[in-house]
Protein backbone atom coordinates (compact mmCIF):
# COMPACT_ATOMS: atom_id res chain seq x y z
CA UNK A 1 0.00 0.00 0.00
CA UNK A 2 2.77 2.43 0.88
CA UNK A 3 4.42 1.46 -2.39
CA UNK A 4 1.22 2.29 -4.26
CA UNK A 5 0.90 5.64 -2.48
CA UNK A 6 4.55 6.48 -3.17
CA UNK A 7 4.20 5.65 -6.87
CA UNK A 8 1.00 7.67 -7.05
CA UNK A 9 2.74 10.60 -5.40
CA UNK A 10 5.71 10.39 -7.79
CA UNK A 11 3.48 10.33 -10.88
CA UNK A 12 1.40 13.20 -9.57
CA UNK A 13 4.45 15.29 -8.64
CA UNK A 14 6.00 14.60 -12.04
CA UNK A 15 2.85 15.68 -13.87
CA UNK A 16 2.44 18.82 -11.81
CA UNK A 17 6.10 19.72 -12.14
CA UNK A 18 6.11 19.38 -15.91
CA UNK A 19 2.87 21.34 -16.12
CA UNK A 20 4.09 24.13 -13.88
CA UNK A 21 7.30 24.42 -15.92
CA UNK A 22 5.53 24.81 -19.27
CA UNK A 23 2.12 25.99 -18.02
CA UNK A 24 0.71 25.17 -21.45
CA UNK A 25 -2.52 23.45 -20.32
CA UNK A 26 -2.95 25.73 -17.33
CA UNK A 27 -2.65 28.95 -19.31
CA UNK A 28 -4.80 27.73 -22.18
CA UNK A 29 -7.47 26.40 -19.88
CA UNK A 30 -7.55 29.51 -17.69
CA UNK A 31 -7.81 31.95 -20.57
CA UNK A 32 -10.43 29.73 -22.21
CA UNK A 33 -12.47 29.76 -18.99
CA UNK A 34 -12.25 33.56 -18.80
CA UNK A 35 -13.32 33.92 -22.43
CA UNK A 36 -16.37 31.73 -21.79
CA UNK A 37 -17.24 33.75 -18.70
CA UNK A 38 -17.06 36.87 -20.87
CA UNK A 39 -19.19 35.33 -23.63
CA UNK A 40 -21.93 34.40 -21.17
CA UNK A 41 -22.45 38.08 -20.43
CA UNK A 42 -23.70 38.56 -24.00
CA UNK A 43 -26.07 35.60 -23.82
CA UNK A 44 -28.23 37.20 -21.13
CA UNK A 45 -28.41 40.29 -18.97
CA UNK A 46 -25.62 39.68 -16.43
CA UNK A 47 -27.03 41.93 -13.73
CA UNK A 48 -30.55 40.54 -13.56
CA UNK A 49 -31.98 38.09 -11.04
CA UNK A 50 -31.85 35.47 -13.76
CA UNK A 51 -28.12 35.20 -13.14
CA UNK A 52 -28.74 33.95 -9.64
CA UNK A 53 -31.04 31.21 -10.89
CA UNK A 54 -28.60 29.87 -13.49
CA UNK A 55 -25.33 30.69 -11.73
CA UNK A 56 -24.65 27.04 -10.82
CA UNK A 57 -25.16 25.89 -14.39
CA UNK A 58 -22.93 28.63 -15.82
CA UNK A 59 -20.14 27.93 -13.42
CA UNK A 60 -20.08 24.20 -14.10
CA UNK A 61 -20.20 24.69 -17.85
CA UNK A 62 -17.08 26.84 -17.54
CA UNK A 63 -15.38 24.22 -15.35
CA UNK A 64 -16.36 21.39 -17.69
CA UNK A 65 -14.97 23.22 -20.73
CA UNK A 66 -11.79 24.21 -18.94
CA UNK A 67 -11.46 20.69 -17.53
CA UNK A 68 -11.54 19.14 -21.00
CA UNK A 69 -8.46 21.16 -21.99
CA UNK A 70 -6.53 20.05 -18.91
CA UNK A 71 -7.57 16.42 -19.24
CA UNK A 72 -6.64 16.36 -22.91
CA UNK A 73 -3.05 17.05 -21.93
CA UNK A 74 -3.01 14.47 -19.12
CA UNK A 75 -1.89 11.58 -21.32
CA UNK A 76 -1.09 13.52 -24.48
CA UNK A 77 1.80 15.07 -22.54
CA UNK A 78 3.50 11.65 -22.56
CA UNK A 79 3.39 11.15 -26.32
CA UNK A 80 6.60 12.97 -27.37
CA UNK A 81 9.74 10.79 -27.01
CA UNK A 82 7.50 7.74 -26.33
CA UNK A 83 7.23 8.64 -22.66
CA UNK A 84 3.92 6.80 -22.40
CA UNK A 85 5.53 3.51 -23.43
CA UNK A 86 8.28 4.10 -20.90
CA UNK A 87 5.72 4.77 -18.17
CA UNK A 88 3.78 1.61 -19.02
CA UNK A 89 6.98 -0.43 -19.08
CA UNK A 90 8.13 1.01 -15.74
CA UNK A 91 7.41 -0.89 -12.51
CA UNK A 92 4.65 1.60 -11.67
CA UNK A 93 1.28 -0.20 -11.61
CA UNK A 94 -1.48 0.97 -13.93
CA UNK A 95 -3.66 1.90 -10.97
CA UNK A 96 -0.90 4.07 -9.45
CA UNK A 97 -0.21 5.71 -12.80
CA UNK A 98 -3.90 6.45 -13.24
CA UNK A 99 -4.44 7.72 -9.70
CA UNK A 100 -1.38 9.93 -9.91
CA UNK A 101 -2.47 11.44 -13.20
CA UNK A 102 -6.06 11.89 -12.00
CA UNK A 103 -4.81 13.64 -8.87
CA UNK A 104 -2.57 15.95 -10.91
CA UNK A 105 -5.49 16.91 -13.17
CA UNK A 106 -7.62 17.32 -10.05
CA UNK A 107 -5.17 19.81 -8.53
CA UNK A 108 -4.95 21.76 -11.79
CA UNK A 109 -8.73 21.80 -12.14
CA UNK A 110 -9.09 22.99 -8.55
CA UNK A 111 -6.60 25.77 -9.27
CA UNK A 112 -8.63 26.90 -12.31
CA UNK A 113 -11.79 26.84 -10.19
CA UNK A 114 -10.13 28.85 -7.42
CA UNK A 115 -9.26 31.56 -9.95
CA UNK A 116 -12.57 31.52 -11.84
CA UNK A 117 -14.82 31.65 -8.80
CA UNK A 118 -13.87 35.17 -7.60
CA UNK A 119 -13.86 36.40 -11.20
CA UNK A 120 -17.34 34.98 -11.66
CA UNK A 121 -18.46 36.58 -8.41
CA UNK A 122 -17.16 40.00 -9.49
CA UNK A 123 -18.47 39.92 -13.07
CA UNK A 124 -21.91 38.56 -12.27
CA UNK A 125 -22.48 40.09 -8.87
CA UNK A 126 -22.82 36.69 -7.18
CA UNK A 127 -21.90 36.48 -3.51
CA UNK A 128 -20.19 33.12 -3.52
CA UNK A 129 -18.66 33.30 -0.02
CA UNK A 130 -21.93 32.76 1.88
CA UNK A 131 -21.50 29.00 2.42
CA UNK A 132 -17.81 28.35 1.74
CA UNK A 133 -17.73 24.85 3.24
CA UNK A 134 -20.64 23.50 1.22
CA UNK A 135 -19.32 25.15 -1.93
CA UNK A 136 -15.87 23.64 -1.33
CA UNK A 137 -17.40 20.20 -0.77
CA UNK A 138 -19.40 20.32 -4.01
CA UNK A 139 -16.40 21.64 -5.94
CA UNK A 140 -14.15 18.90 -4.56
CA UNK A 141 -16.63 16.06 -5.17
CA UNK A 142 -17.70 17.08 -8.67
CA UNK A 143 -14.17 17.97 -9.77
CA UNK A 144 -13.00 14.51 -8.71
CA UNK A 145 -15.74 13.00 -10.88
CA UNK A 146 -14.59 15.11 -13.83
CA UNK A 147 -10.93 14.25 -13.19
CA UNK A 148 -11.53 10.49 -12.89
CA UNK A 149 -13.76 10.02 -15.94
CA UNK A 150 -11.68 12.52 -17.90
CA UNK A 151 -8.38 10.81 -17.11
CA UNK A 152 -9.65 7.39 -18.22
CA UNK A 153 -10.89 8.83 -21.46
CA UNK A 154 -7.70 10.81 -21.87
CA UNK A 155 -5.88 7.48 -21.79
CA UNK A 156 -8.45 5.94 -24.11
CA UNK A 157 -8.25 8.64 -26.76
CA UNK A 158 -4.53 9.38 -26.51
CA UNK A 159 -3.54 7.61 -29.73
CA UNK A 160 -6.49 8.76 -31.80
CA UNK A 161 -6.64 11.29 -34.52
CA UNK A 162 -8.99 14.15 -33.59
CA UNK A 163 -8.07 13.49 -29.97
CA UNK A 164 -8.98 17.01 -28.85
CA UNK A 165 -12.46 16.54 -30.28
CA UNK A 166 -13.07 12.96 -29.19
CA UNK A 167 -12.41 13.54 -25.49
CA UNK A 168 -15.15 16.12 -24.80
CA UNK A 169 -17.54 14.31 -27.12
CA UNK A 170 -17.21 11.09 -25.14
CA UNK A 171 -16.75 12.57 -21.67
CA UNK A 172 -19.58 15.11 -21.45
CA UNK A 173 -22.46 12.60 -21.82
CA UNK A 174 -20.73 10.39 -19.21
CA UNK A 175 -20.44 13.34 -16.85
CA UNK A 176 -24.06 14.47 -17.12
CA UNK A 177 -25.17 12.97 -13.76
CA UNK A 178 -22.13 14.46 -11.99
CA UNK A 179 -22.48 17.87 -13.64
CA UNK A 180 -26.22 17.94 -13.08
CA UNK A 181 -25.85 17.21 -9.37
CA UNK A 182 -23.16 19.89 -9.10
CA UNK A 183 -25.37 22.43 -10.89
CA UNK A 184 -28.41 21.58 -8.78
CA UNK A 185 -26.34 22.07 -5.62
CA UNK A 186 -24.29 25.09 -6.64
CA UNK A 187 -27.25 27.33 -7.50
CA UNK A 188 -28.87 27.20 -4.02
CA UNK A 189 -25.47 27.34 -2.32
CA UNK A 190 -24.59 30.54 -4.18
CA UNK A 191 -28.02 31.94 -3.35
CA UNK A 192 -27.37 31.33 0.34
CA UNK A 193 -30.04 28.67 0.79
CA UNK A 194 -29.30 25.88 3.30
CA UNK A 195 -28.37 22.45 1.91
CA UNK A 196 -30.90 20.02 3.40
CA UNK A 197 -33.83 17.77 2.52
CA UNK A 198 -34.02 16.96 -1.17
CA UNK A 199 -30.68 18.58 -1.89
CA UNK A 200 -28.90 15.92 0.16
CA UNK A 201 -29.90 13.39 -2.51
CA UNK A 202 -27.65 15.25 -4.94
CA UNK A 203 -24.74 15.13 -2.50
CA UNK A 204 -25.24 11.37 -2.19
CA UNK A 205 -25.40 11.07 -5.96
CA UNK A 206 -22.07 12.89 -6.28
CA UNK A 207 -20.43 10.65 -3.68
CA UNK A 208 -21.84 7.52 -5.35
CA UNK A 209 -20.69 8.70 -8.78
CA UNK A 210 -17.17 9.35 -7.50
CA UNK A 211 -16.86 6.00 -5.74
CA UNK A 212 -18.24 3.88 -8.56
CA UNK A 213 -16.29 5.54 -11.34
CA UNK A 214 -13.06 5.64 -9.37
CA UNK A 215 -13.38 1.89 -8.77
CA UNK A 216 -14.32 1.20 -12.39
CA UNK A 217 -11.46 3.34 -13.69
CA UNK A 218 -8.85 1.69 -11.47
CA UNK A 219 -10.05 -1.77 -12.54
CA UNK A 220 -10.17 -0.97 -16.25
CA UNK A 221 -7.10 1.24 -16.65
CA UNK A 222 -4.74 -1.67 -17.34
CA UNK A 223 -7.06 -2.83 -20.10
CA UNK A 224 -7.06 0.65 -21.59
CA UNK A 225 -3.29 1.15 -21.43
CA UNK A 226 -1.92 -2.32 -22.10
CA UNK A 227 -4.73 -4.64 -23.23
Amino acid sequence: MTRFLRQTWIVMAKDLRSELRTKEALNASLSFALVILLLFSFAFNPTSDLTREISGGLLWLVFAFAGALILNRSFARELPNDCLDALIASPVSGAALFTGKALASYVLLAAIEAVCLPVFGVFYNVRWTQQPLWLALVLLLASWGIAVVGTVFSALTVNMRLRELMLPMLVYPMLIPCLMAAMQLTTPILAGEPVQGDLMAWVRLLIGFDIIFTALAVVLIDTVLVG
Binding site: V149, V152, L156, M174, V224, G227
Partner: peptide
Amino acid sequence: ARLSSVMLIFSFSVVPFVFFSI
Protein backbone atom coordinates in the same frame (compact mmCIF):
# COMPACT_ATOMS: atom_id res chain seq x y z
CA ALA B 1 -12.15 -3.78 -29.99
CA ARG B 2 -10.39 -3.32 -26.65
CA LEU B 3 -11.07 0.38 -26.22
CA SER B 4 -14.64 0.25 -27.46
CA SER B 5 -15.39 -2.65 -25.07
CA VAL B 6 -14.18 -0.45 -22.21
CA MET B 7 -16.42 2.31 -23.55
CA LEU B 8 -19.39 -0.10 -23.46
CA ILE B 9 -18.75 -0.88 -19.78
CA PHE B 10 -18.53 2.83 -18.92
CA SER B 11 -21.63 3.70 -20.94
CA PHE B 12 -23.71 1.05 -19.25
CA SER B 13 -22.52 2.14 -15.79
CA VAL B 14 -23.68 5.70 -16.44
CA VAL B 15 -27.18 4.62 -17.48
CA PRO B 16 -28.58 4.00 -13.94
CA PHE B 17 -27.12 7.33 -12.75
CA VAL B 18 -28.75 9.11 -15.67
CA PHE B 19 -32.12 7.59 -14.86
CA PHE B 20 -32.03 8.33 -11.14
CA SER B 21 -30.60 11.81 -11.38
CA ILE B 22 -33.00 13.08 -14.00
